[in-house]
Nucleic acid binder design. Structure first.
Lengths: 235, 235
DNA sequence: GACCGTTATATTATCTGATGATTAGGGTCC
DNA sequence: GGACCCTAATCATCAGATAATATAACGGTC
């Protein structure tokens, strides 16, 4: 499970150190030479990792000045790694989770509405398949399969909009679903209780009823949000 | 104006080549050695560029197999560079512009509503300032200042939600505003004609009226969309 | 002739050393 | 005291060598 490439490991170490504010915005992270030393890797690995951090908006580099941590507002927050680092840090975890929920509450109902209007035959089948997987996971009581199927369901709805911009929320979806199931105590019960809402989304899309699809998705997401509040994941 | 770092230039060349489907999804781009040769740079520059492309989801690398172009669905479409490359290629420009408009139509009215509910005194001032800049640019007839001020206005509204996730659309905003003004013929007229809608957003936020803010933002964006359709930027 | 393990090979991954470019900071001269 | 120059720290880039890995070619067994 450890990443194959060395530079990815370095990226992870530095990225999470920055996200946890061990190096606060405006300050410089250690020099290439120091990182090589402390991480026990060659210069190329360090440089490639820092280069990626720069492309994620987390640092800026310049000769003599060093590698400076950029203000949080410039970070590419929708990137999977960035999000994971922030979630791991506990520092702004609640805030970020709240923000994700707020954003989902905006985007996903609208996506469901669009899907009801525009989904192709194939795209509807993909949603049906994902829903069937959810039911299956619920029957078998398999939490991992449940997470995966839930994710696939929301992804399939989003794909049915044929809008690549809306696809940018994949990473956020993963985070939410992963956290909901990993922390909520009686997760399978919650999962089963939310099946009906998901089915509502599917059926509304199937009969091309945007309003109903939108409402069903609102119910789906608000259920999740409520459960997260109950388990104090968010306020 | 040219980028300072060599690797950024390399990144640009390869990135736009991929976006224009000179290397279609699933195929391999030239090897490191070939790219060094054809671009006249050292291996480290090529490797850093490819490393960034990988972090943007545009390619996957493996020894012996080479560097393979990933399917479009995995690209980080909200990244400024990725979006610029796609816009430059003309291949899917219309589709992407349409998708951006659709996405804006979803999230910006919602942002305006949230802003009306949550904006702080400072955040409202930022919106007011941006609006004043817009009026100023309209009076002076300065297109560049108009683009900048328009962008600042939408950015200020988005910031007033205090939701970092919604901030991920900065890049998309830039693209839309840049294109609208660079291509529309009588741009300053359009800009002036849309001032009233912007003012409506500002006033609704100032008096903390989410519904009105949402509606005013809908009007603002639909005006823009209409103008883009008239100039055949989108269908 | 089909299947399976072995070997060859192309390509990326990583390390190391050397040189260039940029800029912060201090020192000098008027 | 201010303009200018010099030095040094740090990233940027190149070059060469070796390791790791995955595909492809090969050959043997049944």
């Amino acid at each position: 499970m450890a990443r194959k490439k060395l530079a990815d490991g370095v990226l992870d170490r530095i990225g999470s150190a920055i996200a946890s504010e061990r190096y606060p915005a405006g300050s410089a992270i250690p020099t290439e030479a120091e990182l090589m030393e402390s991480l026990g890797v060659g210069r190329s690995s360090v440089r490639e990792a820092i280069r990626v951090l720069a492309s994620l908006g987390m640092v800026e580099t310049a000769p003599r000045r060093g590698t400076i941590v950029a203000p949080r507002a410039e970070w590419n927050m929708l990137n999977r790694d960035v999000m994971r680092w922030m979630m791991g840090s506990e520092l702004h975890k609640q805030d970020l989770l709240g923000a994700i929920n707020e954003a989902r509450r905006i985007f996903e109902p609208a996506s469901a509405g669009l899907a009801a209007r525009k989904a192709s035959r194939m795209q509807i089948i993909a949603i049906e398949t994902a829903y069937a997987e959810m039911e299956d996971a619920a029957t078998r009581g398999d939490p991992d399969a449940a997470i995966q199927a839930d994710r696939n369901f929301h992804l399939a709805v989003q794909r049915a909009t044929s809008n690549p911009i809306l696809g940018a929320f994949d990473a956020a979806l993963d985070v939410i679903l992963g956290l909901l199931f990993s922390v909520t105590a009686n997760h399978m019960d919650n999962f089963r209780a939310n099946l009906g809402n998901h089915l509502g989304v599917l059926e509304a899309i199937r009969r091309k009823d945007p309003q109903a699809a939108e409402q069903a998705m609102i119910d789906t997401i608000e259920f999740t949000t409520r459960k997260m509040k109950e388990s104090r994941l968010i306020t």
